[in-house]
Nucleic acid binder design. Structure first.
Length: 392
RNA sequence: GCGGCAUUAGUUCAGUAGGUUAGAACGCCAGAUUGUGGAUCUGGAGGUCGUCGGUUCGAGCCCGACAUGCCGCC
């Protein structure tokens, strides 16, 4: 028999906030953790060496089933020996199932009980994604944490629409698990083919849906837990609903989730969102904001958002964030970064991405430390107050 | 020296038969962005129409002089 796919221990708790250790087959991850998004096999705008450097020290990043399946395709990745070897990253990888893309690339899709038919955004060809296909692709990718194939309902979906969608997600979750287990037995997971060997199989996370309807969220939670997964995610938030709805759902659902399994809030969020969700019991996050907004000129700092495009920085010799210890803040001024951005230089995106990731990851370090030392409420209060100070 | 053409937003240009608050693109100034289509979207500011004078109820459009630039001719 194989070793456990995943181990999770909670070492400290402060209110609902938890600090723990998630042990994957590719190393230990201290939680709460932020996972940079690397959709197409790259965290855009940053080298893997930098992700591993002391500045960032990301222990786990994301990859995306939908995007990698379409391009370069699983045959290429299988031939390379899995996604880790293909991209040159030997720390942990989590892959999203493609369910979210079914929603976000919505115009071209057709959803049925069996799965989702849609047109590829790459070449327009007709494609079909289902729980079984998604599991097969994720096994070929060899990610360490696999997500079930779900359907994401729009933020303002009606009760009836949400219920139908949530029930479909539950049925897909069962099929995902069945297919996943079979693939683990067959050892199709490319991670298993690695010469150095790994300590366990892939892990599988279930996803709780239900939009802003709390009773549907609770039903989704119960049914997902009944199926049984290595970890549980809250999906379908930050998809157009009011922010207060998002926090109401997290506050109601997170504490009801299994205490001995990691809780993952998908696609969230701003630095403030992260700290507030941790306070409500969440352990894991991913979000495109630090990387995407970095590429479009927005820096996240301890004093709030800073738009490097703003003319007020033209002659400003200060770093992006005077209390940031990252290598970009240690070396470059706002004036220079603005110049790079306005000139369209690649380096602008690279440096802003680096700083933003450093800030997100450092924030989570602070969160973990404060939970372990029992100072989380103070950390939270001061962190939020400083963000509101806004700029300067 | 003579002749032709040009001159309208920061830039490149439109401006219909002379008719109320002169338009576009890009740029500029801002904003949005939450399981990434290196994407996209949304606002805003900015012009004494080269200058001076004339014709007309009314001129960016017509007339004259001047200025500046380009081209051609002696």
């Amino acid at each position: 028999m194989t070793a456990a796919a995943l181990r999770f221990t909670v070492d400290a708790q402060d209110g609902e906030a938890r600090a723990g250790v998630l042990t994957t087959r590719r190393g230990q991850i201290e939680t709460p953790v932020f996972m940079p998004v690397g959709t197409a096999g790259t965290v855009k705008g940053i080298r893997f060496e930098e992700l591993e450097s002391k500045d960032l020290d990301a222990k786990i990043i994301l990859g995306n089933t939908y995007h990698l399946w379409l391009r370069p395709g699983i045959n290429v990745i299988r031939a390379a020996g899995g996604l880790h070897r293909f991209i040159g990253w030997d720390r942990a990888l989590l892959t999203d199932s493609g369910g979210f893309q079914v929603w976000s690339l919505g115009a071209l899709r057709k959803i049925s009980e069996e799965g989702t038919e849609f047109r590829s955004h790459v070449d327009g060809s007709l494609r079909f994604l289902s729980p079984e296909v998604s599991m097969e692709v994720q096994a070929a990718l060899g990610s360490d944490i696999v997500m079930v194939f779900d359907e994401c309902a729009p933020g303002q979906a009606s009760h009836e629409e949400t219920e139908r969608s949530m029930n479909l997600t539950t049925r897909w979750a069962k099929r995902s698990k069945t297919a996943f287990n079979q693939l683990q037995i067959e050892r199709v997971d490319t991670g298993y083919l690695e010469a150095e060997g790994l300590s366990g199989t892939q892990a599988l996370f279930g996803i709780i849906q239900g939009a802003g309807h709390l009773e549907l969220r609770r039903t989704s939670l119960e049914e997902t837990v009944n199926i049984g997964f290595d970890g549980y995610a809250i999906g379908g938030l930050s998809v157009g609903e009011e922010k207060s709805v998002m926090f109401d759902v997290i506050e109601d659902i997170a504490p009801r989730m299994p205490k001995d399994a990691p809780r993952y809030l998908m696609g969230v969020g701003t630095p403030e969102d992260l700290v507030e969700a941790v306070a409500r019991g969440v352990d894991m996050f991913d979000c495109v904001l630090p990387t995407r907004n970095g590429r479009t000129g927005q820096a996240f700092t301890s004093r709030g958002k800073l738009n490097i495009k703003n003319a007020q920085w033209t002659n400003d010799t200060r770093p992006l964030d005077e209390s940031c210890a990252c290598s970009v803040c240690g070396r470059h001024s706002r004036a220079y970064l603005r110049h790079l951005y306005m000139t369209g230089e690649l380096l602008a995106s690279i440096l802003l991405t680096h700083h933003n990731l450093a800030f997100f990851l450092d924030t989570m370090r602070g969160v973990r430390q404060s939970i372990r030392s029992g100072d989380f409420p103070k950390f939270r209060r001061e962190f939020i107050e400083r963000l509101d100070a806004n700029g300067e």
